[in-house]
Nucleic acid binder design. Sequence first.
DNA 1: CAGTGGTCTAGACCACTGG
DNA 2: CAGTGGTCTAGACCACTGG
Lengths: 235, 235
Amino acid sequence: MPHHYQKVYQDLKSQIQSGEYAIGDYLPTEKMLCEKYSIARVTVRQALNELVKEQLVTRIQGKGSVVQPPRPTLALLSIKGFSEAVGKENRKVTNIFLKPPSVSNFPKPFFYPLTDAEQTHSCLYIERIRLTDETPVMLEFTYVPLDQIQDFDRSGLINNSLFKTLEEKYKIEIVGLEQDLRALEADEDTAFLLKIKHQSPVLHIYRRYRTNVPFLFIYSSLFCATDKFAIGSAW
Amino acid sequence: MPHHYQKVYQDLKSQIQSGEYAIGDYLPTEKMLCEKYSIARVTVRQALNELVKEQLVTRIQGKGSVVQPPRPTLALLSIKGFSEAVGKENRKVTNIFLKPPSVSNFPKPFFYPLTDAEQTHSCLYIERIRLTDETPVMLEFTYVPLDQIQDFDRSGLINNSLFKTLEEKYKIEIVGLEQDLRALEADEDTAFLLKIKHQSPVLHIYRRYRTNVPFLFIYSSLFCATDKFAIGSAW
DNA sequence: CAGTGGTCTAGACCACTGG
DNA sequence: CAGTGGTCTAGACCACTGG
């Protein structure tokens, strides 16, 4: 913890998360924090602004810094039983790869417009089924452009998670998402893999994830059986 | 423009947006900006940090401040023709109210768990159809709890937009979203209103919007005909 | 009115990047 | 090495909230 503002930030954050300051409570004033830590006010403000950025705290001029109710963690895809609706835990999900991740070119035409760099380089292609309680709920086709990622190690995904692998090995994080949604009748292959009736409704999603690397996007096409579970997303 | 940092922020922002500084360009150094505006470095940094917060700029220690590629504007619901995929303009949408907005109680059971305050107070209820090019694409049922909103003026929504009305009249802004998605077969009423075949697939979405007011949520239930258009969302 | 956070000054030392 | 942004000090005046 090399910096003063980080110390103040961490202290306040853990006090909030432990409930020492409850939702709606006022944090100590800037002046009190200056005195407690023997630091300048600018430094205290730097710590408080971090908390504001994380939406843990709102500052009100003339009054003080108020602890905010927690915002839901970012969930891009969660699987919920109908009775759970929201707020409850999501279901555990198992992944089955239909075939090992492979390196190929982007198919043409592709469902999102691609940059020249993406088109002329290869991509990592992943086909998998996600199951919950042994019920298949999602068929997922994912494309990771390799023009900006050197030496992608196909040998394994950490925890079977592409996003965790990208984060830990390459420091690539998801920072945003565009998606296009529609309801379709399941074709024969999809119905077979998802173990639902031919022509029953399936949720289809095209996704383009933005990352912290400029111009690096990750693309997915998803087919979801929503007869037993709903698909959740949040930000 | 009362504050120095706002002046610097606005100047840089418009220079970026006009293309004076292109993506990947370096902005003037903090020192240069201090001299140009005759202000302290802390003030220049405040301006630059605003740009970082908006993801227009990334700062690199030892190098400078780099202009970032624009991120897509937040779109909670957009309607896209299939050929457009993404990146193109969204379709113009018309609203038709099935009946005038009314004040009532929340139905029981409700599709999200409600707080006591919400349950014991009334809510504004809105039923509308959204059309694009005279084709109905979405049936929307929206519930706005009134326990924290005083004197809601039912007389009219600004531009027919609930969100714009909340923002301009009550300074309530949407800051987040949870949603649950599924594909269903259209029942008779829904099929009739959306002008689609009975039992054809429809996209159904439950939504809970978070606002900048703690514990004030806005709820929607949406039925979307996705045979001609896809439903987009982004953050 | 006293107390709060918001803006600002004019410096300082440091860590990092590139030549 | 000179130049960059990151952290920090010890003040100042201001706008806003509530009693």
